[in-house]
């Protein structure tokens, strides 16, 4: 899967799961603020990424994933 394609899929999945407008999911936007994530929904996001892309986000890596661009890079390099 090309990175563009992966990003497109990611945006659509996240917008759907967390019921936010896909337009608000911009690369430099903050993940937690944009999708109103708390400790429970963060686990949903990690589970979703694992299910859809086969990439396991490790707990110690989470603090470094601040923006969507961080997430895309993390997932793409591990796919």
């Amino acid at each position: 899967m090309e990175k563009d394609e992966m990003i497109k899929k990611m945006v659509s999945i996240l917008a759907d799961e967390f019921e936010v407008d896909a337009e608000t999911i911009q690369p430099d936007a903050n993940i937690k603020e944009t999708m109103h994530l708390d400790s429970l929904s963060l686990v949903d996001m990690v589970g979703l990424v694992n299910e859809e892309f086969g990439v396991e986000i490790k707990t110690p890596d989470l603090p470094s994933l601040k923006t969507f661009a961080d997430l895309y890079d993390y997932v793409y390099t591990r796919m």
Partner: peptide, 10 residues
Amino acid sequence: IMSQVGNITM
């Protein structure tokens, strides 16, 4: 187990 973050497991 689908995912685990800190003390929360899904």
